[in-house]
Amino acid sequence: MTEGSPAPAIEISSMSKWFGPFQVLDDIDLKVMPGERIVVCGPSGSGKSTMIRCINGLEPFQKGRIAVHGQELIQKARTLDAVRKNVGMVFQQFNLFPHLTVLDNCTLAQRWVHKVPRAAAEKIAMAQLEKVRIPEQSRKYPSQLSGGQQQRVAIARSLCLRPKVMLFDEPTSSLDPEMVREVLDTMADLARDGMTIICVTHEMGFARGIADRIVFMDQGKVVEEAPPAEFFDKPREARTRKFLDQVVR
């Protein structure tokens, strides 16, 4: 991050969220600059998913503000659509549309939302599928692919919309171990291309390798935020140390 750099890609300030009486997120502050790679980790139930789901408006929040490339998130259809144009999201369960081919999964939003003609949309889709290294699967249905392939299609589907920010919520957690690698490699490619990334993951090797900063959450709070070297080798907080003892063997 350079000094005096332009506006942040994502700015979360004093954001809090409740599910009924239960406070899931407690006064979250997070600033992500364009091109930065953030890994979010923390124990189960600490609010990681909820936080990144707030960033593209899948969850409403009650206090504070979130801005994505200067566009503030308000629960209004118009602004949500504007924000979602800039933000791609990849889920743990892939969530491809099972009745559409890989290619149609990738062209659908281009054609329906961005009104790209079919031929152009397919060209963009094929380029992205090539990037995630599965152009040869484009005519298949999601159920005919392995989990790792499906997740890479989901990444390509998001990339087709040319997002400025990519959100990942445990993208490898439901994959068999031998498929984790291929998805992480795809994400590393993205990082190398300069994409702004926020990724919830427990893949600590990946975090160490590509993250600019690691954000550790516990009980709805950001407990610690540090570059990987510092985070893994000299964590400041006791709770971070305890967590690291559990996940890093």
Partner: peptide, 16 residues
């Protein structure tokens, strides 16, 4: 609801 969220996160309208 994951299917719905995937569609939403791609920017589709509620009818889409």
């Amino acid at each position: 609801k994951e299917q719905v969220e995937a569609a939403r996160s791609l920017g589709l309208s509620s009818f889409q």
